[in-house]
Every structure is written in structure tokens, then in C-alpha cells.
Design a protein around this nucleic acid. Structure first.
Lengths: 251, 251
DNA sequence: GCCTTGCCTTCCGCTCAGCGGAAGGGAACT
DNA sequence: AGTTCCCTTCCGCTGAGCGGAAGGCAAGGC
């Protein structure tokens, strides 16, 4: 028994996606062997797929022979949720100009927030959130802002799970978190203090289009300057409204 | 003769990529039938592939049933040339702060420039270059800056082709273009006046790492304000140097 | 009402594209 | 010379994938 038609029950497409899926934020450069291991494919199979993907510039090889995600995939990715970023960016820029703080744009993806754009200066607080980063919803400003405006059913099932607790300040007790989400709805914005990382705090507002939260804008700053947050709320809410209006048109 | 193993000589991978390739800047939303037509696949085949890709969120379906590029692909794409963008962004931001003009970051891809990041305000000149846009090299500032520092062989073969001429101001005559590239090398930056679009002009500088042009920064402004360009050159060159230094470390 | 036109979806039998074990090669350490 | 990493090529077996045909479903014309 040598060869045969491979492990049954997996489509070729799934194998291609498994190869691509081997790359993530922590593994941007992989050897062929890494890819095979991480995707669960035989070395030979991974080799062929990688070569084909390389030919299309979906993957490319660095000088050291390691593979990384190619330009063509980046280019393709730009087409995804492109309009939101394009519409929102000038307003993020404006908000950055008005506040001088790190400004973020995030959308919900499953049970997490995905950071899709950000504007920040050179003197910014070091932050986790590269664009493309995923974080849980409850410890982040943008996450709370989005979660608060989801359906009751969604919020219920979110709170029913065991929630991660990245810092001692993270609110994970369902009752207290539910009350906090209610106050987010009452005020129209969310606040966090050292819930995701020690040393930073944030404010965030949802971007509501047709009564649904399509994205959220947030500012992050050093927690030593937490008392400056209230000053940022007005421009933040204004920015969120402007983006919602611009995005709602011809959407 | 019904069925069979499909059009021979095409790998499954190539079919997957053909489906993805059906999407481009001008076609961000496609029906299944569109995808089949544009990718040259049978409807049934396209259908199956699209379903599999949808399951992985590489594609997703809008409310109107049309497909568009999904979040997961965008996320994957973020891993491509991520370090360059991450390192360069704060400096682009700085440059925007110092000049108030549209700031771009671009890399060479084949015979074109690919815009990978940009910073711009709300009052910006309307511009062609979304991130993910491709443009030819010779009519753009960033393109000239990159082309000038390529190998002699590359420049030769670039000039040997028939060059596009998007405006009457575009320089396409090989001799003149070669002289212009020489003066770019002499000065260290490139200038354009209405060569890509009427109404705008630009200045751009290469980001040199280990003697190779890895990217270029550029500013674009209204051609009525062309006389302000010299004022922007110093911050531009400085920004390019800073990015080169930061990118060169631990590269 | 009925026909047409445009989509999307399911069914199914034929076949070759793809699979992976085995083997070979090369570079960098010990 | 031995060991341990990688990467690459070869090749025979087979079931995953192919696409024509047929069915559904909604919107518009008459």
C-alpha cells in the first residue's frame, strides 16, 4: 500500500486553505516542513501546493528560503471590507489630529474583534493591536462597544462562556458585565481601564448603520492619563456619527 | 461522454486561485455566474469551490447574494509585508503631520508599483491610489523613485516596452525618461507634474536598505500648488531615511 | 395567467489529478 | 564520518473532482 488517493474526506480546497492557515500573526515566516507540520499535510503534498501558490505569488520565498504570505494575497485582501476602511480613514485621521492618541477601527468577527485600521503617531503607547489582530470582545473598548449593541441572544451566548481574563482588572463576571453593557447603551460609548493590558485604557463608540453596529472606533492611551478620557468622548462620538453617515450612503 | 475529469492541464489549486482572481478592484462583488465566467470554470465547479471558500470565510455572501472577499483573506493578507507597513506607518504619520499632504508608501511588484499604505486627511485631493492599487512606474513619483534605483538591466527592459501615456504630460520617450531617472539618482528624489492624472503632482523618495530600493514614500498634491513641492523635499528625504534605518534593523 | 430570462442548486458516472511513501541530495553542525 | 536538519524528485494507485443535465426559484414582460 503505497500512494493511493490520500487521506480521504479532505477536499483539495481544504488542503490549500490548510497551507494558508498555517500562517498566523505568530508565524509569519515558515519553512516547508513547518507548513507541512502545522497544516497536517504530508511533506510531499505541502511541497506541491506551496510551489503552486508561489507561482501565483500567493506565497513567496525570502532570502533564507522561508515562505511568507505573498503580495497577491495582500492585494486580494484589500478588496475585503474595503469601503468601510476607505470611508472611515479620513475621519480616523481627523480624530487622531484632534486628540493625538492612538485611533482604531474594528469590526466583530465571530466572538472576537478584528482590528481593521488604525492611525497612530511615533510617540504612541506601544500597543498590541496591529491591523489584522484579533482580541476578545469583553476586555477591549471597541469590543464592548460592539457587543453592547448586538442582539440580546448574542450577548447572552457570549456571556455564557468562560471568559478570558488577561489582567486582574478584566470584568468577567456575567452579571456585572451585563450591567456594564447596559450603561454603554445608555451613554453611547464604552470605557475600559487596564482590562486588556496593564498600562493602557480606552474609550470606544459603535458605528451604527440601520440600527446595527457595523464597526467601532476607539482611542487607546496610557492608563496614567485616564483622567483625560472624558475630553476625548465628544470627538469620538462625533467621529463615529460621521463615519456612520458616510458609510450608510450608497452602502 | 459526460463528466470525466475536467479540462486537463489545470490543477485544482489553479482553479481555486482562478476563483479568487476573478475579484479585482473593479469587481469587488460578483454573482456565482460572474465568477464562473471570469474564471473560465464551469458553473458547477465554480459553485463547489465558492461554497468551500465560503465555509472558510475566504469569501462571503452579501445580503443580495453576491460574493465578496471575506475577512479571513483580508486577515491573511495583513501578514504579507506586514513589517514594512508597521515600521513605516508612524513615519508616514509624522510626514503627514509636517506637511498636511497625502502621503503614500509603495513597493515595486513586477513592472508596476503597488500602494501598500497611505495617510491622508479629509481635505485631501481626491486620489486614485487606494491601498492595493497598482499603477505603472514611469508616470508616478514613487514609481520613478523605485525604478531609478533598479539594476541597469531592469531599467533597460522597462524602457524597451511600449509605455502607457495616461496624460499628455507623461514622459514616455525612452531617452528622456532615462535622463530623468539619472537626475533622480543625482538628487535622491523624484518629481512628477500631472504625469498620471491631470490636476496633481508629486515628490517621492526611495527607501534604500542594503543598497536596494525596498519601497518608496511619496507625497501627492494639487498641481496648482506645485511650487510648494520643494518645501516638502527635506521632510520627505528625512522620512525615507528614518524608515530605511528602522526597517534595516533586525530585517 | 404563461412564457422567458436570469440566477442558484443538486445529481451522478467517468477518469485523471493528486496523493504520499520511498529515495536522493545538499548544507550545516558535532 | 556521522547526525540532523532541510528540500526535491519519482511513481503507481485510486477516489476526489469534474461538468453535462436537470430541477427550482424569483423577477420581469406580455
Amino acid at each position: 500500500m503505497s500512494g493511493g488517493s490520500g487521506e480521504p474526506g479532505r477536499s483539495v480546497t481544504s488542503r490549500v486553505l490548510a497551507v494558508l492557515g498555517a500562517f498566523d500573526t505568530g508565524h509569519q515566516e515558515l519553512t516547508l516542513t513547518d507548513i507541512a507540520r502545522r497544516s497536517g499535510l504530508a511533506l510531499t503534498t505541502a511541497h506541491r501546493l506551496v510551489r503552486e501558490l508561489e507561482g501565483w505569488q500567493a506565497l513567496s520565498r525570502g532570502d533564507d528560503g522561508r515562505y511568507h504570505v505573498g503580495l497577491r494575497l495582500w492585494e486580494l485582501g484589500q478588496l475585503g471590507s474595503g469601503r468601510l476602511r476607505e470611508v472611515a480613514h479620513p475621519w480616523l485621521q481627523e480624530l487622531f489630529g484632534a486628540t493625538g492618541e492612538n485611533v482604531h477601527l474594528a469590526v466583530r468577527d465571530g466572538l472576537e474583534v478584528l482590528y481593521v485600521d488604525k492611525v497612530y503617531g511615533r510617540r504612541a503607547v506601544p500597543i498590541l493591536s496591529r491591523t489584522g489582530t484579533r482580541l476578545p470582545m469583553h476586555p477591549t473598548g471597541v469590543g464592548k462597544a460592539l457587543l453592547a449593541y448586538e442582539t440580546e441572544w448574542f450577548i447572552g451566548s457570549y456571556l455564557a462562556r468562560k471568559l478570558e481574563r488577561p489582567t486582574p482588572h478584566t470584568v468577567t463576571e456575567p452579571g456585572r458585565l451585563a450591567r456594564e453593557l447596559a450603561s454603554v447603551r445608555a451613554r453611547g460609548y464604552a470605557l475600559t481601564y487596564e482590562e486588556m493590558t496593564l498600562g493602557s485604557c480606552s474609550a470606544a463608540a459603535p458605528i451604527m448603520v440601520d440600527g446595527r453596529p457595523v464597526a467601532a472606533v476607539g482611542v487607546v492611551l496610557s492608563s496614567r492619563r485616564a483622567r483625560e478620557l472624558p475630553r476625548l468622548v465628544e470627538p469620538l462620538l462625533d467621529g463615529a456619527r460621521q463615519i456612520a453617515r458616510a458609510y450608510g450612503e450608497r452602502g
